[in-house]
Nucleic acid binder design. Sequence first.
DNA 1: CCTGATGTGTGTATCGATTTACATTTAACT
DNA 2: AGTTAAATGTAAATCGATACACACATCAGG
Lengths: 333, 333
Amino acid sequence: MATISDIARQANVSRTLVSRVLNNKAGVSPENRKKILEIIEENHYVPNSLAKSLVLQKTNTIGVVMDDLCNSFFFKLIAGLQDAAESHGYNILFCSGQKDMATRLKYVDYLTGGCTDGIIAYGSCFDDNELFRYLAAKSANSVLIESNLSDCATDKILLDNFHGAYTATEHLIRQGRRHIIHVTCDMNYAVGLERLNGFVQAMRDYKMPLGPDSILYADHFEKIAYQQMQKRLAHGTRPDACFVGADKPAFGVLRAAMEAGLSIPGDLAVIGFDDDEPDSKDMLFPPLSTMRQPLYEMGQAGVSLLIDKMNHSDREPVVKSFDAELVLRETCK
Amino acid sequence: MATISDIARQANVSRTLVSRVLNNKAGVSPENRKKILEIIEENHYVPNSLAKSLVLQKTNTIGVVMDDLCNSFFFKLIAGLQDAAESHGYNILFCSGQKDMATRLKYVDYLTGGCTDGIIAYGSCFDDNELFRYLAAKSANSVLIESNLSDCATDKILLDNFHGAYTATEHLIRQGRRHIIHVTCDMNYAVGLERLNGFVQAMRDYKMPLGPDSILYADHFEKIAYQQMQKRLAHGTRPDACFVGADKPAFGVLRAAMEAGLSIPGDLAVIGFDDDEPDSKDMLFPPLSTMRQPLYEMGQAGVSLLIDKMNHSDREPVVKSFDAELVLRETCK
DNA sequence: CCTGATGTGTGTATCGATTTACATTTAACT
DNA sequence: AGTTAAATGTAAATCGATACACACATCAGG
């Protein structure tokens, strides 16, 4: 690979002149500029980004830490992050993979070890709190998405899960549904708890019956919700509406209900949370009503906030909250 | 952020000693080693990876170029790449996003501009050939996955699409199916063409009828295949088996068939290609029979090949071919 | 007592870029 | 003609790490 010195040598000028040409600065005669540009072109020369970042103390790279890249739930978030980063002239370095905490802390060490200007961490799993705290302590330029750790003085992007869950439940109640249950998503995540709380609050406010049968505990995937709902339909009283803490388990609920011969949404109305399945509208399931989480916008906002913070390192931490939006499709009108 | 000089100053030693401690080298007295380690710990010091990479001419980072990160098809590939990279002590830098060619060539410039040791490019879209050629010309350390460009002297990871398609078709024929059709995936991709060729060859070898009605042209998604199949079932002769060039369009085919009242696999057997839907077995569709493409293993192999190439820069290019495996589920026994 | 090996430490060049300070030439204006 | 300003160029410091060459002390064996 050619270096700036190679170019300078070939052009019979100093490195300084080449650097000025590269960065479109004044102080180069037209002839020299032309000659240098030609030689750059000939050699397909591209400045070494490491050297540049080292001297400028600026990498134009944002590190992103998340549980798992391989989950369709993250598509919109990733797209939002990528688009915003690109439009600001930043690259993104993804670090993911569900590893033990020691490994994940090493990721943070790596990302804060010079190769990024700032870090965005996504997640609300309680197990990750240690990670977030470590990150916040190490890097002044960091943004948490979904995690509302009060002892981390970083910028935060949040979703109002409580309000979203309240809205969904309220909608079911106002529809005249009488036997409403909630299938939770993973309770190891703050979002799971918040959504459950929103459901309970709405039920209480409207004086709806709330018993031990009103809540089924599941996780972020389809299977357990399916099994729980199957068991419930076999034994318990039949619900006529179900608010589910996420979309994937909502599909599990739908599957159990349909296999049990229930008509959707006649016998059972279902509202999910997230709007995470890009293809769901095309699938054989009835299109799922859900609380749309604006993950794309949240990703964008995370990047904006981070870049703003890097430019105003002295400003107070900002918390930006988003609202989920009720999207009515076939499973609940 | 503390630097090696800060540590050296605090410990009253030279930078060299600190560097030796960092890299576990000899030449440091036990007392000094202990003192330096303590100071490193106190300061949460982590060596700047840019500086290190610059002087060592080694980044331990692999660049990955692909169309689109946000597609469940790539999950296994990404997982394979990540796992293999991690086990070899490498990081992965993803560059994706379907942009115009100029932007994508800039990605390559960026990745070859010092921040990676080598590059893996995924894809077989004919439009990307320019990109692959550019990459092969710029970097001696590159691996192409899925693309079999004869004029690129890089390592290659390939799937025998022809043979896979042949196998799938042959299976349908041997089952006694008489009216077999093929729904292609996107013909702008080499894999689309190769799978079509495999289908045609099998049909001819077994003297099966092959007319203009035998092939429906679709793409990599569900919608067009659904529409094509719908139209076909409304007008043409009814097929009793269908080999589809990818899984997503296979779901479109299934949907059209089920809506038309066909029983699966009784009236219509369906075999897809890729085995890309991690959740498909849990969905309401009958689990899809398919030609499993070992994407995880292919990703791993790509990383291994790249690292091997970096250690033996003089060796001849290697081409490694994988076979697809027939996985029989509900849509075809 | 001298030689050589070993252990421990320091100084300096290096990677590839940018940037500052300064030198030189050219042009311009009194 | 003489002074000044503008334009153009170069040399050297810098970023943060590694590694090579070398200095010095200690200790063993002849």
